[in-house]
Structures are given as structure tokens and as C-alpha cells.
């Protein structure tokens, strides 16, 4: 099973992404967090009761307090990190960010806001999670 988490402090962005994820049948009920710290607590809590789930995380970079990078650093320490699949979602992609992302094993892809239909289709093709979208 693949659970989708949306981490972004902009409520309109969260709204758009929820709709897109739903409509493109990536997940029925994505869970959203306006603070990265809350998303992290959720994942830590989940580890206490492992249910053999994978997580697709749409992660904004620029957020107050804990930003996207801080969040990624915390994920690196988790024993279950191979089950986390992070898509960095940012208003403007620059080369520096792409280089920085190479340091984190959980990052699968970059999306420039707003998330488009073709972005959603590409998400389904990411090799680590593509098997969740194949017809049974």
C-alpha cells in the first residue's frame, strides 16, 4: 500500500495537489501537513506500529521553522527510509537545490509548482513505486 503525504505551508497549494492526486488516482485520501515537524511526528508514530506501508511525500522546500531540507535530514536517520519516496515540490527549481538533493537517498524527483497532469503521470512511473499503479 502507498500512502501519500503532502507537506506545504500554502493551503491553496495543498488544495490543488490533493485534487490532482485524487483525480489522477495516485491516492484516494492524501494526508496534508502545513508544518514539516507534524509530518515527521506522523511518520515516527507510524513506525511504532509498522503496517508495511510505503509513503509518497510531496515536499515543499521553503517553509518556516523546519524547512524541506531539515525534514530530509531527519528522514535519513530512519531505519525504514527505503519506504519513503520524496518528490520535492518548489515554486522555482534551481541547480543548487538539485545538487543538494543528491545528498539524500529518499529524494526521487523534482516538480516545479504548479503540479501538472503530466507530473502526476510521471510520478506513477517512478521505478521504486510504479508497481503500486499496475493493474492487478
Amino acid at each position: 500500500m502507498l500512502e501519500v503525504l503532502i507537506v506545504d505551508d500554502d493551503q491553496i497549494v495543498v488544495f490543488i495537489q490533493k485534487k490532482m492526486i485524487n483525480n489522477h488516482e495516485i491516492a484516494q485520501n492524501p494526508i496534508s501537513f502545513s508544518k514539516a515537524a507534524d509530518a515527521l511526528s506522523y511518520l515516527v508514530e507510524d513506525q511504532k506500529h509498522p503496517q508495511q506501508r510505503d509513503f509518497l511525500i510531496l515536499l515543499d522546500i521553503n517553509m518556516p521553522n523546519m524547512n524541506g531540507w531539515d525534514f530530509l535530514k531527519c528522514l535519513e536517520g530512519h531505519p525504514q527510509k527505503s519506504r519513503y519516496h520524496v518528490i520535492m515540490v518548489t515554486s522555482s527549481i534551481d541547480v543548487k537545490d538539485k545538487k543538494e538533493a543528491e545528498n539524500y537517498s529518499t529524494v526521487r524527483s523534482f516538480i516545479e509548482k504548479p503540479i501538472s497532469a503530466s507530473d502526476c503521470e510521471k510520478i506513477k512511473e517512478i521505478s521504486e513505486i510504479s508497481h503500486f499503479f499496475k493493474p492487478a
Binding site: D10, I12, V13, I16, K19, T90, S91, K113, P114, S116
Partner: peptide, 18 residues
């Protein structure tokens, strides 16, 4: 500025797409 400008623009673009 590019980040600040792109944020509302991205929202507009996303909403129009919806």
C-alpha cells in the same frame, strides 16, 4: 524575488488548470 514571484503565479496556474 523569483521564488516570491513564482509562488502566487504557481497558485494561479494550478487553480486555472483545475
Amino acid at each position: 524575488q523569483s521564488h516570491v514571484v513564482r509562488a502566487p503565479l504557481a497558485r494561479i496556474m494550478g487553480l486555472i488548470e483545475l
